[in-house]
Design a protein around this nucleic acid. Sequence first.
DNA 1: AAATCGTATTGACGTGGATCAAAGGCGTCC
DNA 2: GGACGCCTTTGATCCACGTCAATACGATTT
Lengths: 236, 236
Amino acid sequence: MEIKTACSQCNLRELCLPFGLDPREVDQLDELVGSRRKIKRQQHLYRSGDPFEAIYAIRAGSFKTDVILEDGRDQVTGFQMTGEVLGLDGISSEHHSCNAIALEDSEVCVIPFVRLEELSRQVESLQHQFHKIMSREIVRDHGVMMLLGSMRAEERLAAFLLNLSQRFTARGFSPSEFHLRMTRDEIGSYLGLKLETVSRAFSRFQDEGLVAVQQKHIRILDTPGLKRILNHHASN
Amino acid sequence: MEIKTACSQCNLRELCLPFGLDPREVDQLDELVGSRRKIKRQQHLYRSGDPFEAIYAIRAGSFKTDVILEDGRDQVTGFQMTGEVLGLDGISSEHHSCNAIALEDSEVCVIPFVRLEELSRQVESLQHQFHKIMSREIVRDHGVMMLLGSMRAEERLAAFLLNLSQRFTARGFSPSEFHLRMTRDEIGSYLGLKLETVSRAFSRFQDEGLVAVQQKHIRILDTPGLKRILNHHASN
DNA sequence: AAATCGTATTGACGTGGATCAAAGGCGTCC
DNA sequence: GGACGCCTTTGATCCACGTCAATACGATTT
């Protein structure tokens, strides 16, 4: 028995694939969203190497994606929240090229890719929104490269916190108070730092009155201060 | 007066947008490719902030893309060669979010984006190939994140050289001997290293007999050796 | 052929973040 | 409710890469 919650009813539609579609078109999209899938914390939505069949819109919960090398090193390539789309990496080779793992008990909408391409040949606004979503991912990745390639530890963490804050805001949550769903180690992997360095940077921010940190609970006390850390760079 | 060189005649079509299209479809694509544009060395194809109107397929030459922060720091996000597509970053916001700069005198095919979306609503194989190209960019970016986030200097350079070698091969050039079109500084920016570090890594590779380096001219002497550098990592 | 300029190499030294190590907080499972 | 395991914090030390500086190389101009 499927719980059939339509895109048209979904409060995430402004952030997700239905954005910009008119009601009739959203109904068409509804038909396409085959099913929902619940993923328990720490479980994989898909693994690197899995055949690619669908992309996924996060309906509840959150995920990380990571890439693993043969020698065991891994790199978290992103953290995804509700309304964001997972699986785009799989289109190019018909196989997924990263792992998607739930950070908490989560639920996704399964969007069979062949059918999405089909419908987006008919519905211009859907086609365009899908392209925007892919492009946004590319732009986001460039931002991460900038961060990894030319920022110091505290700048990276400040950028990370400001980015989270903004995304929580877009979802109607507090911009200044939230729970991290990922560990220090996962943050470190994403930011190209060791977990100890992440922890120390948090402590320093706390000492400077920028944030209040209590384990995974974060309160941002001085947003402009965090932004200043990002820009206050002498040169490179 | 336009030099009208058709996709159907182009020896890059296997690497580019026409891949997978049948001859009739390639003709349709031809009509869409509005014009070609020559870009001199060091000139911009587009700049961050420019309104987005078209994507570009590189017909001759090569480019770098970079992102610049307010404080002047910049990060090279990629090097592009013939057959590769530039401008995908612009779709998401209708404005380009990075700069594309020619590394040598180059020529691109201008592909007006509205028309590309139009045609790819009619031509399934074009739609799919375009999606693959975007997805490939995302996968590539994840690879760069891995490199920036968890590799040491020599591993980064080895990965870079092997990647170049493979791309030259795909274009019918020697896998083992080529000219770098970018400076040490640009390589460094891309790899998240300073130019001195890049230079030293080259020297070390040379000492170890892995490559012969003479300024921008590179000869790879020991491909397996370079690959070993990539994997021979104790742990993380 | 000399002068100039951008690029590359190499050396000496400094430092930010990694590594190693220990201890404390918190949730969870018997 | 006690013990165990995971996560986090913090300190001490190390080292890979950055920084600073000098020199060399090659192309281009005059």
